[in-house]
Amino acid sequence: MSDSREGLLTVDLQAVGDNYLVLRERLADGSRCGAVVKADAYGLGMARVAPALYRRGCRDFFIATQAEGETLRALLPEDADIIVLTGVRPGRELECARAGLVPVLFTPQQLRAWVDSCARAGIRAPCSLKVDSGMTRLGMSSAELRQLLTERDLLRAADIQLLLSHLACADEPAHPQNARQLECFRRAGEELKALCPQVSLSLANSSGIFLGDDYHFDIARPGSALYGVNPVPGSPNPMRAVVELSLPVVQKRYVAEESSVGYGATQKAAAGSWLAVARGGYADGILRAQGGRGCGWACDRRLPMVGRVSMDSATYDISALSEAQREALENIEVLNRELTVDEVAGYAGTIGYEILTGLGHRYFRRYLRS
């Protein structure tokens, strides 16, 4: 029997796999679908999620750090490629190569250090490059790429596997930045492939897949959509819900006269109302910004959150429940198929990514498989 006294977080691995297939089927012919499993698979457990994706046919896995990559390498067969999106720290090139990881490099200097380290060890290990197509975060500028293309000996010595860039506005299909970045990346890809024809190209993230075939190139790398976040905001979510979170009720109380609730006395409960305090607060990923705006779910209805979220608890108005329902109430759900990760993010003024990655470790975790 599961110990769910601190809350029960259910992760539907079948839904993750189904979402992967939905995304893969949207890709243009010849494009393959990878998966971003960084940040412990967006907080849901890389050790369970990554093998489930591998079983569905995924062979290209993207993580953020070398430490994550080393953990993932032990979880997957050798034919899985593991690409480290934030590259490799200086002096750790050989360690990264021997771990079977593929770093994403951002400058010609990083590429030289990678090639030199591998050459001194007598090995040739694959790497990837990133070009900045307009997000101004990580990646080579157009000028740096042009300079690199003049260094033919370096390019011949390097085993460059992949060229990437990242879209800044993919969740806004009409934003002109998408077309500008597409053209910049296409041009960079053509120039590099003229000298290194083996290089694959990757631009589309979750939302980028829905921008159309032109954005798909050789490899798409969805992340959040795999875990149920809507990749097309403002339209029906094509992805299945992946997570459910149920919190135990630790106290139910009748409010005899109007009373303030929680820190700061920011909100009042009316006389005659009923409240339930659930064990789960901002230390568990129930964001403080939801206070007074969010809600829970029980008995097929939404239950308003009242007052500020505390570190370990939050309070919900259960006045709408019948006496029998209140007496039987043991848990309040704060994520489910009705109360989606995107809706909850809206209450907190954030995005689904933050809701997922913030889910705490005090919950008992249950994984569902087909």
Score class of each variant (00 low, 15 high):
Met1Trp: 15
Ser2Gly: 03
Ser4Phe: 04
Arg5Trp: 12
Glu6Cys: 13
Val11Trp: 06
Leu13Asn: 08
Leu13Pro: 09
Gln14Ile: 06
Leu21Ser: 09
Leu23Ala: 08
Leu23Met: 12
Ala28Thr: 04
Gly30Tyr: 13
Arg32Asn: 07
Arg32Asp: 06
Asp40Ser: 00
Tyr42Lys: 10
Gly45Leu: 10
Met46Val: 11
Ala47Ile: 13
Val49Met: 09
Pro51Ser: 00
Ala52His: 03
Leu53Gln: 15
Cys58Val: 12
Cys58Tyr: 08
Cys58Arg: 02
Ala64Gly: 02
Ala67Phe: 09
Glu68Trp: 02
Gly69Tyr: 10
Glu70Lys: 12
Thr71Asn: 08
Leu76Asn: 05
Glu78Phe: 15
Asp81Val: 15
Arg89Met: 13
Glu93Gly: 04
Cys96Ala: 13
Arg98Lys: 03
Gly100Pro: 14
Gly100Trp: 12
Leu101Ala: 06
Val102Tyr: 15
Val102Pro: 14
Pro103Gln: 15
Pro103Trp: 01
Val104Ile: 08
Val104Leu: 12
Val104Asn: 09
Pro108Asp: 00
Gln110Ile: 00
Arg112Gly: 01
Cys118Asp: 01
Arg120Tyr: 06
Arg120Asn: 04
Ala121Thr: 11
Pro126Thr: 14
Lys130Gly: 05
Lys130Cys: 03
Val131Asn: 01
Thr136Ser: 14
Gly139Val: 10
Gly139Leu: 02
Met140Asp: 00
Ser142Gly: 06
Ala143Met: 01
Leu145Tyr: 00
Leu149His: 10
Arg152Gly: 00
Leu154Ser: 01
Leu155Glu: 02
Leu155Cys: 02
Ala157Asp: 08
Ala158His: 02
Leu167Val: 10
Leu167Thr: 08
Ala168Pro: 13
Ala170Ser: 12
Ala170Lys: 02
Asp171Cys: 10
Asp171Gly: 00
Pro173Ser: 11
Gln177Leu: 12
Ala179Arg: 14
Arg180Tyr: 05
Leu182Gly: 11
Glu183Val: 05
Arg187Ser: 02
Ala188Thr: 00
Lys193Cys: 15
Ala194Asp: 06
Leu195Gln: 00
Pro197Trp: 04
Val199Trp: 03
Gly208Met: 05
Asp214Cys: 08
Pro222Ile: 03
Gly223Glu: 08
Asn230Phe: 01
Val232Ala: 03
Pro236Gly: 10
Asn237Gly: 08
Arg240Tyr: 06
Ala241Ser: 07
Leu245Tyr: 11
Leu247Lys: 07
Lys252Gln: 02
Lys252Gly: 07
Ala256Ser: 00
Ala256Trp: 11
Ser260Phe: 14
Ser260Thr: 12
Ala265Cys: 12
Gln267Trp: 15
Trp274Lys: 03
Ala278Phe: 10
Tyr282Gly: 07
Leu287Phe: 14
Gly291Cys: 07
Gly294Tyr: 01
Gly294Leu: 04
Pro304Ala: 10
Arg308Ser: 09
Arg308Phe: 02
Val309Ser: 01
Val309His: 15
Met311Lys: 06
Ser313Asn: 09
Asp317Glu: 09
Ser319Asp: 13
Ala320Phe: 13
Ala320Met: 10
Leu321Cys: 05
Ser322Asp: 07
Glu323Asp: 13
Glu327Tyr: 07
Ala328Gln: 03
Ala328Arg: 14
Glu330His: 12
Ile332Asn: 14
Leu335Asn: 07
Arg337Ala: 10
Glu338His: 15
Leu339Phe: 04
Leu339Trp: 05
Asp342Ala: 02
Gly349Leu: 12
Tyr353Ala: 07
Leu356Glu: 11
Thr357Ile: 14
Gly358Phe: 04
Tyr363Glu: 03
Tyr367His: 12
Arg369Gln: 05
Arg369Cys: 07
